[in-house]
Design a protein around this nucleic acid. Structure first.
Lengths: 232, 232
DNA sequence: CATAGACAAATCCTATAGGAATGGGGCCTC
DNA sequence: GAGGCCCCATTCCTATAGGATTTGTCTATG
């Protein structure tokens, strides 16, 4: 594979303002979410560099950033590995944390919601409704993406950089993908209804109602996931 | 300055299992907390490498990790800078986030508290009481360290890796140091009393009481800080 | 057959070198 | 005198090379 290097761009074009390490970072992120890198698999620095046709230096920098997100783990002098699979305990902890953080985000976002923010949220809900949700990963990828975007938009609209950081620390983007990695979407109808409820609560302008709707949603997600959890 | 390289160790001695990038990371962290690197100051990769007598590669890796903590910011092709100073809005957002996260941590920690955890907390409170708190940074450094340790211990004792990540995402360790950078400690007596209250609530084993004590503490910290906030 | 030791390949880690971009200072032009 | 242009020093960014470490395999020995 060959990444676009900053050297390759045509002269005069607006510069990309992005360096190779950033491209490598996003490429690795895509690999993780595509399931191309399975949990526990080793991520060789030199190997990845050869694969992407870059030198190990930017790969090293990209992995250093990824490590802090929890998606890969590093052991000194041994290299990087994709973080291990989610256990039931991990899932329970994640939901506990989401219950602590996301209703607060909804409450804050509700009181500071802009028309543009509402429009973005409406778009995410729409995408959630129309996204295909077949059994294979490629088919429900868009669904999960819209789900994640909905929650992330609320975190951003909270207007609180630390709440956004805390939300991001949950690793929502990827944890979500990995959670359903072998399961598929079985609760789309209910989940969509709950997202609509959250959206309407936000649109209504009542912060407490928004927080309650979000809490209800997360709790129901937890209940459904526990009900048909895959074996560890 | 010269960092200990893995090459320097005597043969046969147990290997350090730590690489140069880790040393650089911790050294930079210390610089940030010592105030040796002021907000807004540029952190040159090559310059830092020369200063620490290492090559730029491990410095680059260390900075990539630091960036994700919010302590330094990177602009592509321009380099790293220490994150700008806290504004009043930043502070308000931080306290809002702490109010959302820390009482939950206290509640969880209370129900899962171990005797060892309680002993550690007791030690942190003791250190808080006995730490000097003079006007200069070096003098109240230990005080802030004990304060931070107290809250971090509770986050760890929560037994929830995601709540701990969320807490760390607030940048507690450093934000705290930077907050009081030019102010000094003026509320030690009240703060110590509140920490003792939180500790006793945790020791009592009543999760709701622990959460309430923590919420009370954070709200009072906010109130006091707003009262005598430095000009932006 | 099991185990310990040695060799080899792969990998990580660091240093060095050089191309590329940025920022500042001086100079020229209008 | 003001504005624009060019040059140069500094710094970032990437590639390459080589030493150090780990791991798998193979062999020899008890």
């Amino acid at each position: 594979m060959k990444l676009a290097s900053s050297r390759d761009r045509a002269p005069g074009r607006p510069v990309s303002r992005q360096v190779l390490a950033d491209h490598v970072y996003e490429e690795l992120l895509a690999w993780l979410m595509d399931g191309r890198l399975e949990p526990g698999a080793a991520v060789s620095i030199d190997g990845t560099a050869r694969e992407l046709d870059v030198s190990p230096t930017p790969v090293r920098e990209a992995l250093a950033r990824l490590e802090h997100t929890g998606m890969v783990r590093r052991v000194a002098l041994k290299g990087y590995r994709v973080a291990p699979v989610f256990t039931r305990e991990d899932f329970a902890e994640l939901m506990e944390a989401r219950l602590a953080i996301e209703p607060v985000n909804a409450r804050l976002a509700c009181s500071r919601m802009t028309p543009e923010g509402l429009a973005d949220l409406r778009g995410a809900v729409k995408d959630l409704e129309t996204a295909p949700r077949g059994p294979s990963f490629a088919e429900f990828r868009d669904y999960l993406e819209a789900d994640e975007r909905f929650h992330k938009l609320i975190a951003e609209q909270s207007g609180n950089q630390f709440m956004l950081s805390a939300y991001n620390a949950l690793g929502g983007q990827v944890q979500r993908f990995r959670l359903f990695g072998g399961v598929g979407i079985t609760d789309a109808e209910q989940a969509i209804a709950e997202h609509q409820a959250v959206f309407e609560a936000l649109a209504s302008g009542d912060p407490e109602q928004a927080a309650a709707a979000m809490e209800d949603h997360v709790q129901k997600v937890r209940a459904r996931a526990i009900a048909d959890a895959p074996a560890d």
